[in-house]
Design a protein around this nucleic acid. Structure first.
Lengths: 210, 210
DNA sequence: TTCCAATGCGAACGATTGCTCGCATTCATG
DNA sequence: CATGAATGCGAGCAATCGTTCGCATTGGAA
């Protein structure tokens, strides 16, 4: 993770408000003008503060953007975790519906910001964002696995959870974050559930051709 | 696509060699130091030419990088198309094995460059690279569909081909391009084939839970 | 009200970098 | 060899941008 070492934390009400303005302004500029044009002068102007005030809290430009990335990532991760819920699932079907639904919900948070972070951020942030989401999905699946193990045809649960994480991430992104071949959002959830369930329930195959 | 309008094409042998050096040098620097540090002075130095010579052919820095992106994309696209072959498939199994195998082969071309382009390039290049690959996979599947239609359980071939493209792209990338949760390359092909076949053969479902 | 710490300000410095332009060198043609 | 076109060179200009620092303003405790 790109280090988020702040110079200091805002203590008074006024400074806390400035601090939030800086993050909000940075997110807006990222969406509107892209990473390349997100410079400190512009952030300060958009936030209605001076550059000097930025540097009260943030040691450098990278950290400002990293804080935006981290805040967004935390929100997405929380939704995936919460929406999946703590209750034990009734069935594999039910569990997969819940997890995929949670991922779809999470990706409705500022999808334009999500797209920018995914597509034109410095290396670490992108990799981490993807990794974090996939890992959250994996953990959800691993969490419910014991209860529904009998309905799964996979042998290696580690590999299977990674595959499910990647599939879910890819399909939800294709529909909600980078709508290039616009798959209707209503369809994505159904098709993702279908793909994941089909994979998890598919019998082991031998290479009879290829 | 990021415009690749060159100022002029190299005509003499010497200048053609310089032109290629510039692209090769740019690719090396991208891999070694990332996009942020890929500036014109460095490219010229690495290529063993002067900045002035860059600007004989390229109108600006972006176009140099765009040309590298385009060249790499063309190579990947060609492998996917060729390796899938023109012969009609024997079966759905056989067809999926061939397509997935071709995608895996294509992603063995300079995976480090591929990763950089995927993770920290300006907006358009990334989106286009992904789109191009997924589209190539889609086209392969649509091409063989008539011969194996009876083995597929999907109704909407357009949606299904997009889903298959995204799944294949995501799993191959997870294993070969961004090996974060390193799935052994030997396993990725098997698991991708398994996921795609399971999806294409899965019966239509009703939402009996969720 | 007083006073100091916390906070805010923004001009300006230094570093980087995209790109130009005038001149030097090489190639093709006769 | 002679000539002009093609190509190559790189110092340096202009613009951008990250960051600092000295001063101004505000907040809260006494």
């Amino acid at each position: 993770m790109a280090d988020i070492k702040l110079r200091k934390l805002p203590r008074q009400a006024r400074s806390r408000s400035i601090f939030e303005s800086i993050l909000d302004a940075t997110a807006r500029i990222l969406v509107r003008e892209g990473y390349g044009r997100t410079n400190t002068n512009r952030i300060a102007e958009e936030a209605g503060v001076s550059v000097g005030s930025l540097y009260q809290y943030f040691p450098n430009r990278e950290t400002i953007v990293a804080a935006v990335v981290e805040r967004h990532g935390r929100r997405v991760h929380r939704i995936i975790t919460e929406a999946s819920g703590p209750e034990q699932p009734l069935s594999l079907d039910n569990a997969v519906h819940r997890i995929v639904g949670a991922v779809v919900t999470a990706h409705r948070i500022d999808p334009k910001l999500h797209a920018i972070l995914e597509s034109e951020m410095p290396h670490m942030a992108v990799v981490d964002g993807h990794t974090q989401t996939v890992r959250a999905i994996r953990e959800q699946l691993l969490g419910i696995a014991p209860a529904v193990r009998r309905d799964m045809a996979v042998e290696d649960l580690e590999t299977a959870s990674m595959v499910v994480g990647e599939i879910t991430h890819a399909l939800v992104h294709a529909a909600l974050i980078h709508p290039r071949n616009p798959l209707p959002p209503a369809d994505v959830e159904r098709e993702t559930v279908r793909a994941v369930l089909a994979y998890l329930q598919s019998p082991v195959r031998t290479m009879d051709s290829g």
